[in-house]
């Protein structure tokens, strides 16, 4: 029982990384811009956050810089996709390579640079006493995990129940209609791509300063940016579903790591311990899932049925009919 609680507790922390990245991408896609550069932006965030925390001793300053750095990087994609109206898939892929490249060069030597003060954790009184759920969600979790809990309903409320959220949806669904009523489509799309970048940067800093601290070059994120892109489709562009998916995948990641530890499993020899190939197979699963979701989700008809923003991936050109 305690083992299960431990795995789920670590899973929630690990899922918080996916949560920020997924909801960030969800904002960008809701405005009609597909940004496949999440992985690159997360790496920039993880690297810059870690190095600022190392230099200043203040992890919160690290988080702030991580968010700004990734937000800045996202604006390259915004310029190419929104102003130059180029193909968003190509530009997003390029952004991943660019982000990875920059962070590997600037992060050279960072992995053995010494220890860094991490983001604080805390237990919530009373709530952490709830049997089973208490220790999973409210015991010894990083502050960022709690911020994640508050963030999801706020994101949902913002998108569905506020005026700026309504404008966000309109711009992603039918930009011509929004434009005709005086909404600045380009400005809003820049803004939400920026917010997506900021949240990807936060996700990166969550890894390097809280969940699995340190800088391990591209292994720091280990493809979680791609899982986030897949989760947005899985979540059907809804923050609550995104949260469910993120925590489930966080828990799965922990389970895959932890299941390879013990020599005995359920009274039998643990195949994941004795045979490394079984472990590799397990590690592959989240990525296999992501590939399947992305392939299925790339079909126009399926996307429509899932409720994708109608103008997702289409640059807006004023005066052209339709989307």
């Amino acid at each position: 029982m305690q083992a299960i609680i431990n795995i789920l507790q670590a899973g929630v922390a690990s899922g918080t990384v996916l949560l920020f990245a997924t909801v960030g991408e969800l904002f960008a896609e809701r405005s009609g811009v597909l940004n496949l550069g999440v992985e690159g932006m997360m790496l920039i965030g993880a690297m810059s956050g870690y190095s600022v925390a190392l230099a200043t001793g203040n992890p919160w300053l690290g988080v702030l810089v991580a968010m700004l750095a990734a937000g800045l990087l996202s604006q390259i994609h915004a310029f190419i996709a929104i102003t130059l109206q180029a193909d968003q898939v190509v530009s997003g892929l390029a952004l991943t390579f660019l982000g990875a490249g920059i962070s590997l060069v600037l992060g050279e030597g960072l992995s053995k640079a010494g220890t860094v003060s991490l983001l604080p954790s805390a237990s919530i009184p009373l709530l952490s006493q709830i049997p089973f759920l208490g220790p999973i969600f409210f015991k010894e979790q990083s502050y960022l995990v709690y911020i994640g809990y508050l963030f999801v309903p706020m994101a949902w409320y913002y998108i569905n129940r506020t005026r700026p959220g309504m404008h966000l949806r309109a711009v992603g669904e039918y930009p011509a209609a929004a434009d005709a009523l005086g909404i600045n489509v380009y400005r809003l799309r820049y803004l939400y791509v920026f917010i997506g970048g900021v949240l990807a940067g936060l996700a990166g800093a969550t890894i390097s300063l809280a969940v699995s601290p340190g800088w391990f070059s591209e292994m720091t994120t280990g493809g979680q940016g791609w899982i986030a892109v897949g989760l947005v489709i899985f979540a059907q562009w809804d923050p609550f579903r995104a949260a469910v998916g993120s925590y489930a995948f966080g828990a799965l990641r922990r389970l895959i790591l932890d299941i390879q530890g013990p020599t005995m499993l359920l009274g039998m020899r643990n195949p994941f311990y004795y045979n490394p190939y079984w472990g590799f197979f397990l590690q592959m699963l989240p990525y296999a899932f992501t590939i399947i979701v992305l392939v299925i989700g790339s079909r126009e008809a399926v996307r429509k049925r899932l409720g994708a923003p109608a103008a997702l991936g289409n640059p807006y050109i004023r005066g052209e009919r339709g989307l």
Partner: peptide
């Protein structure tokens, strides 16, 4: 009011 309606279908 244009021939092509300027309405957001999902709203």
């Amino acid at each position: 009011i244009h021939q092509h309606f300027m309405l957001v279908p999902s709203q």
